[in-house]
Simulated assay, not measured.
Amino acid sequence: MNANALAEPTIDLSKTELIKPGRPWKTLSQVDLAATEWVDWYCRRRFHGEIGHISARRIRSQLQPQKSNAQSRQL
């Protein structure tokens, strides 16, 4: 499997959720800003079913203290 095969479903999803409903875009800057915001939402803030329907940001914040405690015990 190549890297493009992994990216294609995400690209299709972004077109469906972001690009097509936002038409007509007036400038490339509008598309760029909207795409950046969508990627932030998709990667950090959306709820993930595989981790208990919470955001990746929240799970990281919950795991961070555990990681810090484990590291301090190793010292």
Rank of each mutant, 00 (worst) to 15 (best):
S55D: 01
C43R: 09
T10C: 08
P65K: 01
L28I: 05
P24R: 04
D32T: 11
H48Q: 10
A7C: 13
L18F: 05
S72E: 09
A70F: 14
K67E: 06
K15N: 00
K26L: 09
L33A: 15
F47R: 15
L18M: 04
L28W: 10
A35E: 08
R58M: 14
E50N: 08
I19A: 09
Q66M: 09
A34P: 04
S61C: 08
C43S: 14
N4M: 13
P65L: 01
R58H: 11
C43K: 06
N2F: 11
P21H: 05
I54N: 00
E8K: 15
K20L: 15
T27W: 02
D40P: 04
E37T: 02
K15G: 00
A56S: 08
G52T: 00
A34D: 11
A34M: 03
R58Q: 11
A56P: 04
I19Q: 07
R73N: 14
I59S: 13
A7M: 15
E50Y: 06
P9N: 00
S14L: 08
T16M: 06
I59K: 03
R57F: 14
F47G: 14
P65H: 00
T16W: 01
W25I: 05
D40K: 03
I51D: 09
I19C: 12
R57W: 13
